[in-house]
């Protein structure tokens, strides 16, 4: 707690608030992963952790180190950029893979391929 004592009170409150809110959002997202019943429902849960949690926690650390002026604050910007760009791509591919597997297994609770049906194997 050497460097944290140098924070002025307003910055300290803001940093704490952002950090706690971000951690709470992440926790809610992971709780969704635990509680929601089907895979397609669970697909929505991690986006809360990324869009809410990551941005808030990165903002907290940017604010903390900008006020302390101990180093450049740009790494967090890069982290926000990477996470917001890459997570949708991952989830989209996972959703497609799950849909493909469910169709191969001919489960009844997923929508069929729209007609006219494409020949199997080509997309």
């Amino acid at each position: 707690m050497n460097h944290l004592t140098d924070l002025p009170p307003w910055a300290a409150i803001l940093v704490c608030g952002l950090l706690l809110l971000g951690a709470a959002m992440t926790l809610i997202g992971s709780l969704g992963l635990l509680r929601l019943p089907s895979f397609y429902d669970r697909l929505h849960a991690p986006t809360i952790a990324t869009s809410g949690g990551t941005i808030l926690i990165c903002l907290a650390s940017m604010l903390c180190f900008a006020v302390l002026q101990s180093r450049w604050i740009f790494h967090e910007l890069l982290i926000i950029f990477f996470v917001t760009v890459t997570t949708p791509v991952t989830l989209m591919l996972l959703g497609q893979a799950a849909l493909y597997r469910d169709r191969v297994k001919e489960r009844s609770d997923v929508p069929r391929k729209p007609k006219p049906a494409a020949e199997p194997g080509s997309e």
């Binding site: 940093v15 950090l19 992440t26 992963l33 895979f39 669970r42 952790a49 982290i79 996470v83 799950a98």
Partner: peptide, 23 residues
């Protein structure tokens, strides 16, 4: 696919944990 979704979330949570350690 559930396991992979869990792994992806675990990565993000671990990253956030490291950020908290950094602060």
């Amino acid at each position: 696919q559930d396991r992979i979704l869990g792994l992806d979330t675990l990565y993000i949570n671990a990253m956030l944990m490291l950020l908290a350690f950094g602060i």
